[in-house]
Simulated scan of single mutants.
Amino acid sequence: MAAASTPSVASAPITQPSGAVPFDFSQPPSIEGFTPLAKRKEETFKEKLLRKTQENPFVPIGCLGTAGALTYGLRAFHQGKTRQSQLLMRGRIFAQGFTVFAIIFGVFATALKPKQ
């Protein structure tokens, strides 16, 4: 059986000429036939919240209604007012349904809106 041997090739380290940089990380790569889109300004949390609230104002209203009914319902439950607590929990369910409906309506309205 003959032993397979790989030819030994002296591999010299690949060096770049002094001063030449293979890739400049401060600039995007140049790709033929490709033009990148302009970079959008990053939104802060507050700007995004205001934009989303203006697009669909019923979602924050529903969220606030849900949180309010839950808070007052738990307070009434803690005070022993069972009738009021039950009514507020039912109101919370209604507010949650309103919020879900508002989200679904907003998604459909956004999908049907023509792109700019």
Rank of each mutant, 00 (worst) to 15 (best):
M1R: 03
A2L: 09
A3C: 07
A4F: 12
A4S: 13
T6I: 15
P7C: 13
P7T: 15
S8L: 14
V9D: 07
A10E: 10
A10K: 10
A12L: 11
P13F: 07
I14M: 09
I14A: 15
Q16A: 12
P17C: 03
A20S: 13
A20K: 09
P22D: 08
P22Q: 06
F23P: 01
F23R: 10
D24T: 11
D24M: 07
S30R: 15
S30H: 15
I31A: 09
G33N: 14
F34G: 05
F34R: 09
T35G: 08
T35C: 09
P36F: 11
A38S: 15
A38N: 14
K41C: 04
K41E: 14
E42M: 09
E42D: 14
T44F: 00
F45D: 12
K46H: 02
E47M: 04
L50Q: 14
L50A: 15
R51Q: 06
R51T: 06
T53A: 08
T53K: 05
T53M: 10
Q54V: 15
Q54T: 15
E55N: 04
N56C: 11
F58N: 13
V59P: 03
V59I: 15
V59Y: 00
G62H: 02
G62L: 03
L64S: 13
L64D: 08
G65W: 00
T66P: 01
T66F: 06
T66D: 03
A67M: 11
G68V: 02
A69D: 01
L70P: 00
L70D: 00
T71G: 01
Y72V: 02
G73N: 00
L74G: 00
L74P: 00
R75H: 13
R75W: 08
F77H: 01
F77P: 01
F77A: 00
H78I: 03
G80K: 03
G80R: 01
K81S: 04
T82L: 11
T82A: 10
R83C: 05
R83D: 12
R83K: 14
S85V: 02
S85R: 02
Q86T: 08
L87H: 08
M89P: 00
M89C: 06
R90E: 09
G91S: 12
G91K: 11
G91R: 10
I93T: 07
I93G: 02
F94S: 00
F94Y: 03
Q96N: 05
F98T: 01
F98A: 02
T99Q: 04
T99L: 02
V100Q: 06
V100E: 07
V100G: 02
F101K: 06
F101R: 05
A102I: 06
I103E: 05
I103L: 12
I104F: 04
F105S: 12
T110R: 10
T110S: 14
A111S: 12
L112T: 15
L112H: 11
L112F: 12
L112D: 10
K113C: 08
K113D: 13
K113G: 04
Q116V: 11
